[in-house]
Write a protein that binds this DNA or RNA. Sequence first.
DNA 1: CCCTTAAGCGGAATAAGTTCCGCTTAACCT
DNA 2: AGGTTAAGCGGAACTTATTCCGCTTAAGGG
Lengths: 193, 193
Amino acid sequence: MNLVTNPRRERVDAARNRVKILAAAADIVAAHGVEGLSMAEVAAAAGVGVGTLYRRFGDRSGLAYALIDEREREFQEAFIEGPPPLGPGAGVFARISAFLHALTDRTVEQLDLLLMAETAAPFARFGGAYDGYHAHLSMLVTQARPGADAYVLADALLAPLAAPLLAHRLRGCGVTVERVKAGLDDLLAGFAT
Amino acid sequence: MNLVTNPRRERVDAARNRVKILAAAADIVAAHGVEGLSMAEVAAAAGVGVGTLYRRFGDRSGLAYALIDEREREFQEAFIEGPPPLGPGAGVFARISAFLHALTDRTVEQLDLLLMAETAAPFARFGGAYDGYHAHLSMLVTQARPGADAYVLADALLAPLAAPLLAHRLRGCGVTVERVKAGLDDLLAGFAT
DNA sequence: CCCTTAAGCGGAATAAGTTCCGCTTAACCT
DNA sequence: AGGTTAAGCGGAACTTATTCCGCTTAAGGG
């Protein structure tokens, strides 16, 4: 069968390599931190050539995002179709707030990887998970503030969670995660005009 | 006299080299864009060794920030002690809005350099000009919203102007500078609760 | 004017990301 | 099963930022 010519299935050896690479990369990060994540080392640990890494993940930050995505898929599902207040069913403001708080936690959890990924390729986040966050938040903001430029406002709510800023404030300036969340809620409160 | 042991004056050859380097770097950017700004090329064009670049500017992004700062010093003066609405004399909200609009323009003007600088060293902006912006905005927000966490809110107002986000939206998504400014004003409007 | 010293200098050496290209082989068709 | 093809592979080569270190020289005191 299979008349629907799927976009060409991944070859089994390629799939095997992808798993080996991600496992090796995760091990290295666990053992030596993100700084230890060099392309040559990952390739060696996974038993493949560096060319294979690049074919599969594009570049260093692509690898980092792949590592991040593994953990993040369930979060995506949670805010799209999970239980409230993150998922549908709660009021708009509650959902926005819950979403921003959850994303803050997610970002803090993976701060080192995100930092590396955004530093190496600040655009990548925009092609990937960021777009999902932005689309979701746009939708909620549209409901919360009919007539406003939800597209731009969503960016404004997401921007304070950029990894470099967050890392700087949390690690170097004594700001706590709670203050960041409270600040976002404060910003949000203005929407209720 | 000079009893006040100034932090050791810059040697004249060093000063000469700094000027040569910045001039060469500016020329290269003008001619080949930011991508052409490689350390080796700048060194060659300035007639110095690469070691001199690093002694003087720390790293690639340090050089970019130096280039940016040359143009930005007058902006710093404008919002601290210039005429209203940017400088003192106007209402707080008007000043915040004027500041954000002006900073947007500044950022857009130097988008390429900022992009490179932040990519290479996302923290650097925080040690330098960013702190000045943040301190200023914090002060204004404190007046606008007594009792709020002005420190964190100032970050939230500044974050949407991060170069990578701005570049992405302006260049790849059809968002205009006006929409960005309007979005910031919209955010700000919430403060007037 | 000479001496001392530490800032400054140059450029080779190093390190890490990324590209390239000829070889291998899974997948599919007959 | 045998043939065809393009995805996938490996790793040497290349590019660029960054570090290192021995030499040079401006600055200032005697």
